[in-house]
Design a protein around this nucleic acid. Structure first.
Length: 399
DNA sequence: CCTCCACTGGAAACCTAGGCTC
DNA sequence: GAGCCTAGGTTTCCAGTGGAGG
């Protein structure tokens, strides 16, 4: 029996016996909201106090939650909203809460589209002005006497890219709404500096209440992971040192619980796939690599065609190259494909975008007499990028 | 100290897809 | 269907620039 057969055999064997590493892998998903949130009592209480007035039909203050990624902001917000919804069934007050992630929505307009969709109304994905879209939402709220709490996640991303117009409109929306409906805004931010971009009026209104989420310590992460592991894995399916390693790796960054839980999930999946019956340190180490690879793969795959061609052009050079050189290569590739090429100005922007995604590194350097340009080189394993680029039918023609 | 390369990156104009009103 | 609107991507234009070589 060779290794493959051996592995398959183990997997099938376990499937038959109904025994697996996981008891309930859903508890390790990002969206999962646990019944009990650890080390966040203070924040939960504060947010609860802030939002409680809605149970009597009054408008809660706007609030701002901030802290680094994976410090529990989103999960606390969702948790409190869940509890609040349950409580509201006992009273007559009807309200809705809407969760929108600004970074996933991408544009100002799409935030509104998302907001509307969550309220159960339809707004066309193009064709309306922003103010028209907002007006429609307000009319909908007014007609249905809706009290709404809008949780705007990654609000810093939105403000940095689009300014605070929309926030300002939300703040002023009360003037256009009857007294029995309102929008309260809960902003969630990874970055405190974004306040500098806000108009003072918006700032004072948004940060009527502020809740800070400190990073988890490694010790706290360990406890959190243990709690999750108990729900997710079968008895004895994970070693203590594997959990500690997850906690240590995530703690080394900045106490990122999301990353810690992610590591645990992927490590579990890898262990299961390899036919092992226990998650060990080795699986965690493999998980680190696997997560990084997936990230790159996904980033490349979702790139628009021209960005992919630019990336491929960069791939051709072993040494760091200037924008000019890469542009010539890019033009050459476009000719081969028989598609019209973009201007160098645009390609320069595309390179900057690839830099932002972390796929390439492209700092601007000066070479004195020989001009000033970006120094472009890959920042990620070439094989992974190649593999991901091959997925594209058009790009494939160039290999 | 000055020059001048090979761009950078801001600003505005332009194009396209789609929805609006009448 | 005409004539209007907007968002988002792109092109056009161009002033600005860090520093090696003179």
């Amino acid at each position: 029996m060779n290794d493959n057969e051996d592995t398959l055999d183990k997997i099938f064997e376990r499937a038959i016996k109904g025994k697996s590493i996981f008891k309930d892998r859903n508890t390790l998903r990002i969206e999962y909201v646990p019944d009990k949130l650890l080390f966040r009592d203070e924040q939960i209480t504060r947010l609860g106090q802030i939002l409680a007035p809605i149970l009597r039909g009054n408008k809660p203050s706007n609030a701002l939650l901030y802290g680094k990624t994976g410090t529990g902001k989103t999960v606390v917000a969702k948790y409190v909203m869940k509890k609040l919804s349950e409580k509201s069934k006992l009273t007559n007050v009807k309200f809705s809460f809407v969760y929108v992630n600004a970074r996933l929505a991408l544009t100002e307009y799409k935030i509104l589209v998302e907001f509307a969709r969550e309220l159960g109304m339809y707004i066309p994905f193009t064709g309306l002005s922003i103010s028209e879209a907002l007006d429609r939402i307000l009319i909908h709220l007014a007609n249905n006497h809706l009290k709404t709490i809008l949780i705007l996640d990654e609000i810093d991303f939105y403000v940095k890219n689009y300014g605070d117009n929309l926030l300002y409109e939300f703040m002023r929306s009360q003037e256009k709404l009857p007294s029995d409906s309102f929008i309260s805004l809960i902003g969630i931010s990874n970055d405190l500096k974004f306040k500098e971009f806000l108009d003072p009026r918006v700032l004072s209104s948004l940060s009527e209440e502020e809740i800070v989420f400190p990073p988890y310590t490694v010790e706290e992460l360990k406890v959190i992971l243990w709690e999750r592991a108990k729900l997710a894995f079968n008895e004895g399916a994970i070693t203590e040192s594997a959990i500690n390693l997850c906690a240590a790796l995530a703690g080394a960054e900045h106490g990122d619980a999301r990353r810690a839980v992610d590591l645990l999930r992927v490590a579990g999946e890898l262990a299961e796939r390899s036919g092992s019956n226990q998650v060990t340190d080795e699986h965690v180490k493999m998980a680190v690599k696997s997560i990084e690879k997936d990230r790159i793969y996904e980033a490349v795959r979702s790139l628009p065609l021209h960005a992919k061609i630019v990336l491929l052009s960069i791939l051709f050079f072993k040494e760091p190259e200037t924008t000019g050189k890469i542009y010539s290569k890019y033009v050459e590739l476009c000719k081969k494909l028989g598609i019209p090429e973009l201007t160098q100005r645009r390609v320069s922007s595309l390179i900057s975008e690839l830099d932002l995604l972390g796929l390439v590194s492209a700092p601007v350097i000066s070479k004195g007499r020989f001009g000033r340009s970006k120094r472009v080189k890959l920042a990620t394993p070439i094989l992974t990028i190649k593999e991901a680029l091959m997925e594209d039918d058009t790009i494939k023609l160039l290999f």
